[in-house]
């Protein structure tokens, strides 16, 4: 096994364990926002779109890189925006100063 594979595998397994540990019992009202928030986090795949775009060297690969960037950008930008919108509903009744809809992350 190469050093690189070992490092990546260790990171993968430890991150899984962190993921299991960080999620404790959460209230039912937060389940959908949490799902949406987690959905936004795997939008990090957008970084991968940059990496493949840098490798692309013909039309077929350009198209694939475009599709990848398009999909990933929807995931990450839409994901954070809609999560913020959902969570904004929680603090609105208590505190009216938060009325402005500051959704966009990107």
């Amino acid at each position: 096994m190469t050093q690189q594979l070992y490092t990546n595998l260790a990171i993968f397994i430890l991150s899984l364990l962190v993921g299991f540990e960080v999620m404790s019992k959460i209230p039912a009202t937060l389940q959908t926002p949490m799902m949406s928030g987690a959905n936004a986090i795997h939008g990090v795949v957008v970084v991968g779109a940059f990496v493949v775009a840098a490798e692309a060297n013909n039309v077929g690969f350009y198209v694939l890189a475009f599709v990848c960037a398009f999909f990933a950008a929807i995931n990450v930008a839409g994901g954070y925006t809609v999560t913020d919108r959902m969570l904004g509903m929680f603090d609105r009744p208590k505190n009216d100063t938060h009325k402005k809809d500051d959704g966009g992350e990107q």
């Binding site: 957008v46 779109a49 940059f50 775009a53 840098a54 490798e55 692309a56 060297n57 039309v59 350009y62 198209v63 890189a65 475009f66 599709v67 990848c68 960037a69 398009f70 999909f71 990933a72 950008a73 929807i74 995931n75 990450v76 930008a77 839409g78 994901g79 925006t81 809609v82 919108r85 809809d101 959704g103 966009g104 990107q106």
Partner: peptide, 23 residues
């Protein structure tokens, strides 16, 4: 340059679509 175009076009369209839909 083709990679930049593909990447930036994809990102721009994706961000616009995602944010508009989400809002």
């Amino acid at each position: 340059i083709g990679g930049w175009i593909a990447l930036l076009a994809g990102l721009a369209l994706g961000i616009i679509y995602g944010v508009v839909k989400a809002r």
